Each structure stands twice: as structure tokens, then as C-alpha cells.
Amino acid sequence: MKKICCLFIFLLFANSIFAQTKNKQVKDESQPIVLGITDKIKSTELGETRTINIYLPEGYNKKDTLKYPVIYILDGGLEEDFIHITGIVRFNTQSWIARFPKSIVVGIENTNRRRDFTFSVPNLDFVEKIGFKKESFPKYGGSDKYIAFLEKELQPYIDKKFNTDYHKTVIGESLAGLLATEILLKHRNLFDSYIIIAPSLWWGDQSLLAEAPKLLKAKDNKPVQVYIAACDKDEDKTMYDVAVSLSETLKQNDGNNTKVHYDYIQNEIHSTVIHQAVYNAFKAFYPKTIYQK
């Protein structure tokens, strides 16, 4: 009986050691899923250090001569739109789909988007018409500095550090869509493709829309393509109306230089529209995959 008891204890102990060893092996074999890299840029224009998330396509090699388009996400934090938009880009650029070339994705993490994405206005009386309180915008009107950051600091930094080509796309939704529209109208040469989703063009009592026809007559405007998405108008008629107005204004005043893709995504609301819109935008810009060409 004593021998049987000792044998049982031995087997129990051996089984425990085996289980621990097996678990340790499994643990040791685990590897993190790496989607990209995070970088820090000290910005003189903004007076602060900004976090930048960067996705490099499969097979990227700094020593190669191959160069890649760059897609900039204005709401590009890890807890914002970087991960799911990068997923859309990765999906569309897989070799068996090849809707558009493999691309670098740059996501700019926010510190104060209401400050950075809005242009200066004389007062905030208009925000109450939209349903906001003035106190919701303790800081605003910093878009000039943010655009300078994009032009003078971020784009040169990305172009110097990575193998980039000339083509640049910007993605902005809501207030970021307002900023993307301002860039399109005032600094359009910064990007070649604009994805503008449910833009907050109510800012400044729609003054940017009112100014648009004049801005579109600038002689140095290069040809660009623009995708504009509006979400369900039953949720917010004003947001729907300004998206439609932007589309019509571009078509009427800059039809030769701007190829406009307007998209009414009826079944999506303001908080859910971006994922479907970005997918639709790339499909509008690049209608066919490699197998449809």
C-alpha cells in the first residue's frame, strides 16, 4: 500500500511538471502581432510632441528602390481610426486583390482635435444652433498651425525616413473632414486624393462653403480626386446638407480639376459611417481589382 501511494504521488508530480513544461513551451512560442511602428515628432509649428503611427506594407525594405504612396489619417491614434483603416488598406493591397498599390499608412494621434481641426472664427454663437455648448470649445481655431505642421514637418519627415512616391491621400471624418476640406480648398497641392466623410462644415456658419467658389478659382490648383460621404440624413439633416453642398460646389466650380465621387450611405450614422466610407472611397478611386482589369 505504501509503494502504491508513493507511485501515485510520483505520477502526480511528474504530470504536474510535464504540464508546466508544456505550458511554458506554449508561452515561449507566442509572438506579438505587429501592425506597425509608433514614432514621436517634436513639432515647432504646434509647440508640442506628436505621436505618429506608421504601417509599412509587407515586403517593405528601406534598401529597395521601390517607392510607396502614403495615406494620412487625421484621426490616426491607436484608439481612433488607425487600426481599422490600415486593415482596409492591407486587404485591398493583397496580391490576390490588388485594387491599388501597396501603401504606407500614417496615422496622426490627436491631442486636441477641436483646436487643431477648426479655423479661426470671430465668435462661437453658431455652435449652439448645432446643439453644442460654447464651453465645449475652450480652444479652437488652430487649423493654420496644424496644416503648417503637415506641410513643413510631417510630410518631409515621412518622405525622408521612408521610401515614398509622389502620391498622397488624406482621410478625415467629422471635424477632421472639415480640416480635409480646408486643405482641399486652400492648400490642395498637399494631397492628390481626398477622402472627406460627414464633414463638419457647419463650423463658422458654413463660411468655408460660402468661400469655396472663390477659392476654387486659384490658378495653381492641380487635378485631384475627392470622395465625399454623407451619412443618414434622418440622423442629422444639417450634416447631410453640407456634404451635398460641398459635392455640388466642387462639380460646379472646379469640374475640370476635381473628380468628385459623392456617396450617400443611408444606413450608417455619424458614429459608424467611416469604415464603410473608406472602403467605398478606395473602390471609387480604383474601381477594378487585378482580376477585373
Results as ranks from 00 to 15, higher is better:
249 T>K: 13
86 T>K: 04
278 V>I: 08
255 G>T: 04
226 V>Q: 00
195 I>F: 06
208 L>P: 00
36 G>D: 07
187 H>N: 15
229 A>G: 00
203 W>P: 07
266 Q>L: 10
264 Y>G: 03
180 A>S: 02
260 V>L: 03
45 E>N: 11
80 E>M: 05
261 H>A: 14
99 R>C: 09
229 A>C: 06
147 I>M: 05
218 A>L: 10
81 D>G: 05
211 E>Q: 12
157 Y>G: 03
46 L>S: 05
202 W>M: 10
278 V>H: 05
4 I>D: 07
37 I>W: 11
238 T>Q: 12
236 D>S: 14
129 K>G: 05
70 V>K: 01
20 Q>D: 13
183 I>H: 11
133 K>Q: 14
28 D>M: 09
103 S>L: 12
179 L>M: 09
241 D>E: 06
291 Y>E: 14
263 D>M: 07
274 I>Q: 15
66 L>N: 09
13 F>L: 15
118 T>N: 01
288 K>A: 08
113 R>L: 01
73 I>P: 04
283 K>Q: 14
265 I>M: 07
95 S>V: 08
138 P>S: 07
124 L>V: 03
185 L>Y: 03
203 W>I: 12
168 K>N: 02
49 T>S: 14
92 N>L: 11
291 Y>H: 13
25 Q>L: 15
227 Y>R: 00
195 I>P: 02
258 T>F: 02
164 T>E: 13
171 I>R: 00
94 Q>N: 10
243 A>I: 01
111 T>C: 05
293 K>G: 13
199 P>D: 07
